[in-house]
Nucleic acid binder design. Structure first.
Length: 272
DNA sequence: GTGGGCTCCTATTCGGGGAA
DNA sequence: TTCCCCGAATAGGAGCCCAC
């Protein structure tokens, strides 16, 4: 979409289903801590290595990812309505803040700008190895962002619209490969970054299975936590106790012969 | 080594109010 | 009625201490 075309409409997502890219749910791509994380995030399972390096404002966080979810959902909504889509999406900042359950105060708009900055400046490098090939890539979460401000009659500047251009990788995943999953809107009400990440992992891995198990240390790796395993276990037990994860119920059991603890994901009985 | 309790810092949320 | 700003209150994240 040319930028002058983008000026013709401002999309809105109120009431539309929210989508997430499957690949974004699989690996620890985002920081789950609210304080700026300046050390890189590294995931290496032998076949895939992912290094995420922070920009000047730190790593993009799981709350920054809400912006991507919003854009992904906007694009998906347009595809499902048979409309044309492009790498560039334009929407009202206020709509995004409402959909993602944030305030609409000045602080929220400032944080939104910081989030755009982090999404643009966080550098992701992936190495995927197969039997005879090694594929290495580097990219940022978004290609570019632009904030359109307008002046009120009193001279005050307000954020009228945001324009985001997605990178090729993300656009291809959404439009060509249709790698999207619907997420529960109450996801946005999860304050804890760990809770959000656990929901994503459950959504990605449980699928139509009745139950999914993973060892505590592997789950910690998948989550990308910086916490020591014992602190991670404590945080996880609190989340299990609070029982706040939408759609899924978690439990922790000691592994066979008193071995490593195992985390069990199950669908909630009340879910349809 | 693990888990519970506690504290501190700060990001986030919320409610009231003004402008468009 | 909607959009945005401001300031106060709240809660999450992280670290420390101590008992087991």
């Amino acid at each position: 979409m040319a930028s002058n075309e983008a000026d013709l409409f401002v999309d809105s997502l109120i009431g539309a289903p929210l989508k997430d890219d499957r690949a974004l749910m699989e690996y620890p791509f985002f920081s789950i801590q609210k304080q700026p994380r300046m050390e890189p995030l590294v995931y290496d399972d032998g076949k895939i290595q992912i290094t995420i390096e922070p920009g000047p404002k730190g790593l993009a966080t799981i709350w920054d990812k809400d912006i991507l979810l919003y854009v992904v959902s906007l694009i998906n909504e347009r595809i499902e309505r048979g409309m044309t889509v492009d790498h560039t999406v334009r929407f009202a900042a206020h709509d995004l803040l409402r959909v993602t359950g944030r305030g609409t105060g000045k602080r929220s708009y400032d944080l939104l700008l910081d989030a755009l900055h982090r999404l643009r400046s966080t550098n992701i490098m992936t190495t995927i190895e197969s039997a005879d090939e090694r594929d290495r890539r580097g990219f940022g979460w978004i290609e570019t962002w632009r904030v359109v401000e307008r002046k009120t009659s009193t001279g005050r500047k307000i954020m009228a619209a945001i324009e985001i251009t997605l990178n090729d990788w993300m656009f291809r995943a959404l439009v060509k490969e249709r790698r999207v999953l619907t997420i529960n809107p109450t996801y946005f009400s999860l304050d804890s970054g760990l809770g959000r990440r656990i929901y994503e992992i459950g959504r990605k891995h449980l699928g139509n299975q009745e139950i999914w198990k993973i060892s505590l240390d592997k789950l910690a790796k998948k989550i990308g936590t910086t916490r020591e395993l014992r602190f991670f276990k404590r945080d996880l037990l609190k989340i299990i106790g609070d029982d706040v994860i939408p759609d899924y119920q978690l439990s922790l059991e000691v592994g066979p012969r008193g071995g490593r603890p195992v985390v069990i994901f199950e669908h909630r009985e009340s879910q349809s």
